[in-house]
Design a protein around this nucleic acid. Structure first.
Lengths: 201, 201, 201, 201
DNA sequence: TATGAATGAGCCTTCATTCAT
DNA sequence: CATGAATGAAGGCTCATTCAT
């Protein structure tokens, strides 16, 4: 009734691709997901929405259409990566030896967690939108690790009084990137932890 | 030479309101430090300044006088606790056995880190104000742990190819509170890590 | 001359999805009109377009095709009801006695206005799109009332120094629903007003 | 932690008064009240906050400090005027004759309502913030009118089966400014209504 | 020195409007 | 013709920071 918006915004960019090709909404959603992943990694979960949309090459409105709340975006990003991680476990479990497979997968997981810095803290922010989220995500990874862990335990190469879930959490913590951390810090600390995990005595 | 150096203990105040007269700026600074510690713990480092000043019972202006930048406050809070932690190490080192002392101090440290959640992420935020800060703080703790670690290594109870600094960092990570974490999660994971640390083979 | 003017009732449609084929644009326009009437009543004239289109079961684009500006929709809604009101006057004028017919029609009009709450304020919003609109709409009702009013005046049952237009406006105002209004408030106040109108002295 | 606001905004306006004189918060609140009154009258209750603050010569923040919610401002504006209206009643009641006083006060009230257009609709918006507000405001005016009404009734100049509250509401409705309204429209319609009110038969 | 009112930049979010399909 | 995804301007609101008192 009152909005007197200027008729059109005109072309925002002479150069870019021929834009707005009704590129099947999915394109936008995916681009946003990707942009968010990058933006979150660079600037944390509180990164301004504008930064994400610019990176994705879409308007803010599009972000809100696909991910009404910030948490929706965060969840989507996490879920997307978790999926990849689970897949990796399947592939690894049918390959190398018990210990090797365990180590390999943990390496993959470490990599994943390493780029998720801020995300974790968002999950614990108390925002009701994340209610049970960490748990839910973690549960998807538990089976992946459990299999590998069982094989190792069966081979006498791992203690059996620790749950896959706990190991997962511990590894996740040790995978956090640290400022003055020399290269391979995470890997070496995780190795020590795994050593402790092998102390079956 | 007879003028008392004490800054006018009996300032004239007949007129004005009974305002907090010359109430030693230090009082404010301390109150703010305390309030910040609490506020940070409750709401993270991004807690609104107002919340801190309200808690401290001072005006915002006072916060800015004592701690011009948010980082100044964060640093102060951390430094304050680090000091207490270092002191504890001194006391412990001259008490129990090598391993016991090590474990005890790490327990103390764990406790400290456990309540600092958000602070850590602030340090890694990339903000130039924290340039080298984590390092600097860590360095103060290194000597504290190194002594305990050396004693343990000398007694054959710890590998010697890991620096005190690395152990400190690893423990700090494992001390992070986790959401679904059962009681004693941190302690148990740290125990496993220490087990790995004892694997001198 | 043998070609049927009916626009291809049997359009080829073998391929595409069973889309609403040539579903008479009128259907959409009508559905929108109806939806708008409801939406306006519920949420005022500023109700988001989306809400109207959802209610009508059409896409936003369709709304803009039929009613480019919000005012077009508002005008259409009002016009639609005015028409019904005028029709009612015709029927009533040839029925009951002077006073009874007048009262009856005003009752009908009251009902109409009562559900138009927000619309009125839109008309007075200063938006050039409504320039002269209220006048135009009002003019259509004037004849309807004038006849009834004249009959009453002729019978000495109404003063004659007030125009049908003014009466119409006054009644419209008194018909506005009021919050704490007891049932029949409008009716009773209008009755008082009509009493005043009868004071021919 | 992240806000990198440019240090200062500099002087927004070379010409204006020497600004920011700590002019006793009340000054701001009053200026805002006044500006709001004007802005509401000109552009309705939904007028952008910026428009109000510009008019008041203060920053947006100041608006939110004094009136956190839009409704707070609306209520304040209304209350302010109600007060003046009530005061007027006191003065009038001890002056002219019964009917004259009644008419005079209603004139005053009409004036008040006439400039409140949009406000009324805000009160009926269903926003919980206005819960009971109209009632509350109305109740303050009821005693003012009741006295005048009683005097008139006692003098046989007004029917007694209508409450002051109802009269108040009816008058308020008739006082609404109408677009094509000739000068004195409200007054004349109200006069007719009052005539009806005098029909004691 | 302390206070807290004022400021305004910046971010979030909604929604009118366009336009590719 | 209809659809609904995309866009981006507009406005709400918060909160860091300054500065008059």
């Amino acid at each position: 009734m009152s909005r007197s918006t200027t008729p059109a915004a005109g072309a925002p960019d002479g150069a870019g691709p021929p834009r707005r090709q009704r590129s099947d909404a999915k394109r936008s959603a995916a681009a946003l997901l990707d942009a968010a992943k990058t933006a979150f990694a660079q600037s944390g979960v509180d990164v301004p929405a504008k930064q994400i949309t610019d990176l994705a090459g879409v308007g803010v409105g599009t972000l809100y259409r696909h991910y009404p709340r910030r948490s929706d975006l965060i969840v989507a990003v996490l879920q997307h990566e978790i999926d990849e991680c689970v897949t990796a476990a399947d592939e690894l479990s049918s390959g190398a030896g018990p210990r090797a497979a365990l180590v390999a997968w943990i390496g993959r997981f470490t990599e994943f967690v390493g780029t998720k810095q801020g995300l974790a803290s968002a999950l614990h922010s108390g925002d009701p939108a994340y209610e049970g989220l960490p748990d839910q995500l973690l549960e998807q990874l538990v089976p992946a690790l459990q299999g590998l862990l069982d094989r190792a335990a069966a081979a006498g190469e791992a203690r059996d009084d620790v749950s896959a879930r706990e190991v997962l959490t511990a590894i996740a913590l040790l995978s956090q990137p640290v400022p003055g951390g020399a290269d391979g810090f995470s890997e070496r600390m995780i190795a020590i932890f795994l050593d402790g995990l092998s102390v079956t005595g």
